[in-house]
């Protein structure tokens, strides 16, 4: 299946073409220069182009060289930036002490006076003691769970000089119901003293006797009622 066209005018024309444009002669130094090129010393680029192992080694070298910077770049771009530290100090959250609500339970802590009366007057000391005893009485009443049988009201008085036993009792009950531990006025105290002297130990005044003179005990105040 060659390009010969026997007995064909085209074959003759093809021969004429080959004859008209034959292969040119090589230059005289063709073989020598080719020989020099064949014996050219080893060059990295040519070896890299031809030798597969050198290609693998070069690839590994390039990859290991680039691995560090690429990893750093990826880390810089993709990973989360560390949060900026807060300059200062943080106070640990204190444990909240919740006060458990419980039924009122009064515990009276008597004052401890380590100094003599030179600093605190005797009246002040007595006022505190009266206030504490009133608080004890109120606590005892709440513990007893009793209620007043009559309204805890007392007449509004400017002076207790003429107060009756009944009125004094109502005043104590009013104070007890309202939780008032303030010391009563002096004229009330003196009126209680007067009535005690006149009528003896009146049972309706036993609450005042405890409150003002520490006579009796708060637990017994409501036993008879």
């Amino acid at each position: 299946m060659k390009t010969s066209f026997p007995e064909d005018p085209l074959s003759e024309f093809a021969d004429a073409m080959r004859k008209a444009l034959p292969d040119p002669e090589l230059s005289s130094d063709f073989a020598d220069s080719l020989h020099i090129r064949l014996q050219r010393p080893w060059r990295f680029r040519e070896a890299l182009r031809r030798d597969r192992w050198i290609q693998v080694a070069a690839s590994l070298l390039v990859m290991t060289t680039l691995a560090g910077p690429v990893a750093a770049l990826v880390g810089f771009l993709l990973l989360e930036k560390p949060s900026v530290p807060v300059i200062g100090f943080e106070v640990p959250h204190p444990s909240v002490k919740t006060e458990v609500m419980s039924p009122p339970h009064w515990q009276v802590i008597p004052p401890e006076l380590t100094l003599e009366d030179g600093m605190f007057s005797l009246e002040w000391k007595e006022a505190v003691e009266v206030s504490n005893r009133m608080a004890q009485a109120i606590s005892a009443w709440e513990k007893s769970g009793k209620t007043f049988t009559q309204p805890a009201a007392s007449p509004a008085r400017q002076s207790w000089q003429g107060a009756t036993v009944k009125e004094l009792q109502q005043e104590w009950l009013r104070r007890c119901a309202l939780g008032l531990t303030d010391p009563p006025p002096l004229d009330l105290q003196s009126r209680v003293r007067v009535l005690e002297k006149e009528q003896g130990s009146h049972p309706q005044l036993k609450a005042w006797r405890w409150t003002l003179f520490a006579d009796g005990s708060p637990e017994r105040l409501f036993l008879s009622e």
Partner: peptide, 30 residues
């Protein structure tokens, strides 16, 4: 080289290369 050199040079020359280029390309083929 002696047998195929002229044919290769002729190939490049008839394709349009200059004479010196054709010879250089023929050497590259070898």
């Amino acid at each position: 080289v002696k047998e195929m050199g002229p044919r290769l040079k002729g190939y490049f020359f008839r394709q349009g290369a200059q004479s010196t280029t054709a010879e250089d390309l023929a050497q590259h083929v070898f």
